[in-house]
Design a protein around this nucleic acid. Structure first.
Lengths: 194, 194
DNA sequence: ACCTGAACACCGTTCAAGT
DNA sequence: ACCTGAACACCGTTCAAGT
């Protein structure tokens, strides 16, 4: 009935771009490649996304949403806070290893308008802050969450980008790192008065 | 005497590229922009670098060398190991904040041939492993260095890419993070038997 | 109202021709 | 032996013309 119903959608375009990104890298996410993937010509994409940067941003938000869902799900699983933190850490690492290029996108864009939105970032940090509150108390939760997040982000980033090339048991090093941080957070340097 | 002495050099080209990178981002590091910066036309660059990727790689190695020099210099400065680690951590953060785009380059290239060389990486980690050896002993040094490096890399990466948008005292959070890790490394989870 | 081919500016890279 | 203009393939983006 309508003169020309859309042959594709913003969602389909975003999914296609994300798939190409993980398979062949950011440079391969070409307007032409994405267009071919959804069965259309490149200029048609501009009916659904403003420009390539906006498309990359959409992919970035998509990844952030998935990660937040993974981290926030099943929050009632483990009883003590230490175990909950370990569960979160494992989910975090698993997600990044499965979506390395997409995850890198979350921190790659130095220019504004392309980087992840504030709400998406807050959603990512929320479950971590919640667990930390029950470990170090409310007032130290943000600092503790930052320390944990910095370590987890740094570890998986280094792992994914090939920074751990000296072998050794990387799985064990990850588990050990959680122990170090948990121990340090309740150690002498971080009394509840902090 | 010689028919045509080089009007530029690989070093000058690398320095120009690095300067453009820090000022305007990776996308601005164009063969034409670099060429203009060294007073030559774009095709002439190919007498000194194989292609753009090789130039980016040269910049990356340059940055890695500078960072290694910063981290390794003056190793005899502080007496106790904890203070030495704090000094390294501060130098690390200062360097990254001064060379954000160059530092990001060290971990951006997922494709081989473009990422930092193994020797450069080893040089970066060496002073950290050395300090860790005097804190947790030889056998736990590599693991401890990885935990510290992951945290420091993660913290400054998040900071530089705008991941800490909730305000708060970021300087204090960094100092606190060092305390947490130092405390955790000598805590109950990490006895010398490790 | 969406799709398309053609066109434009730009970039990486090659190469024959200059000196 | 290095430099250059011209050329090629490719990409992002725009737009008039189709249906």
């Amino acid at each position: 009935m309508s003169p020309a119903p859309s042959r594709t959608s913003r969602d389909a375009i975003t999914i296609a771009a994300r798939s190409i990104l993980e398979q062949d890298g950011l440079d391969a996410v070409t307007m032409q490649a994405v267009a071919e993937c959804v069965g259309v010509r490149a200029p048609s994409l501009y009916k659904h996304v403003a420009h390539r940067d906006a498309l990359i941003r959409a992919v970035s938000d998509d990844v952030a949403g998935d990660l937040a869902a993974v981290l926030g799900s099943g929050r009632t699983g483990a009883r003590d806070a230490g175990r909950r933190l370990r569960v979160i850490a494992e989910r975090y690492r698993t997600f990044v290893r499965r979506n390395p290029a997409g995850y890198a996108l979350l921190f790659a864009g130095l220019d504004p308008g392309q980087r992840t939105s504030d709400e998406a970032l807050a959603a990512l940090g929320e479950p971590i802050v919640a667990v930390m509150a029950s470990i170090v108390g409310e007032e130290g939760a943000l600092d503790a969450a930052r320390t944990f997040t910095a370590w987890a982000h740094g570890f998986v980033s280094l792992e994914v980008s090939g920074g751990f090339r000296l072998g050794g048991d990387v799985d064990a090093a990850y588990a050990r790192g959680i122990d170090v941080i948990l121990s340090g957070l309740s150690g002498p340097a971080n009394p509840p008065s902090g």
